[in-house]
Amino acid sequence: MAILVTPETKVLVQGITGAFGARHTQLSLAYGTRIAAGVTPGKGGQFFENTVPIFDTVREAVEATGATASAIFVPPPFAADAILEGVDAGLDLVVCITEGIPIRDMMMVKRAMLGKKTRLIGPNCPGIVTPGDGRDSIGGCRIGIAPGYIHKKGHVGVVSRSGTLTYEAVWQLTCRGVGQSTCVGIGGDPVNGTSHLDVIKMFNDDPDTHGIIMIGEIGGSAEEEAAEWIGNYCKKPVAGFIAGATAPPGRRMGHAGAIVSGGKGTAAAKIAALREAGIAVAETPSVMAERLLKLM
């Protein structure tokens, strides 16, 4: 097993004909992911790469193909609409890759999703990978923009707000011969669909996940909330890293959510909360895998 997606998950891509969406759909197909459909309004009836049927609406794509998850690559002004279209079509999972969605739009999306069965990952995230058992982990489910080949099928769960730091952690594991159950990038925005804590709970319940790496950064208090829960309830070893110890207060460090404001959300406070919860904190990002493996 794994969390959120398995190699059998049927995925549709919203914004499949844009340059960004098309490039990463090709890579997911090459990884062996079951890309069942694409959605681009007005291009229904066409095919992507002569194989993947394109539909005008998400609902039509779901009805025709049985897809249960979606990857969103549409530009920021249209992304909120795309997310809610996926929710309306009854998808289990919507992964929004788009960076730059206004916070106001995301507040409305979160409100509109209350009580709905769909889980949103992102936005502004690298997506999800559940590695497969082929060479270079081919045969897995790759939703988003992460490099597939750095993964290896196994038992460590990785959750992070940052794309390249996730790759860094995954690569450290793979280079040591340690595989991953599922790697989840929850995104760098201040309003997101799924938190560190949500993912940690899923890893805790997943019999296939034996250890967890949690990567956080300055801004907000999601890492502290996750740490508190881990300290009380998590049955599995957890290693952590927090980026941004040297970030000046009041400045957004690339990610919209990475900002220390009013003295809140500092790396020091987060690291203290992680340590308090018994999480093995990596002093540098070079030792994320090492810190976890010591515990396992």
């Binding site: 940052s162 730091l165 860094e168 950064e217 040297t246 690339g254 002093e283 990002p285 070079s286």
Partner: peptide, 23 residues
């Protein structure tokens, strides 16, 4: 490349006794 990695790079420079000039 990447905001998280860029922050972590500044941090690791400081960790080893250096002083980052930028993000």
């Amino acid at each position: 490349n990447g905001a998280g990695l860029a922050m972590a790079t500044m941090d690791i420079i400081q960790h080893f006794g250096g002083n980052p000039a930028n993000f």
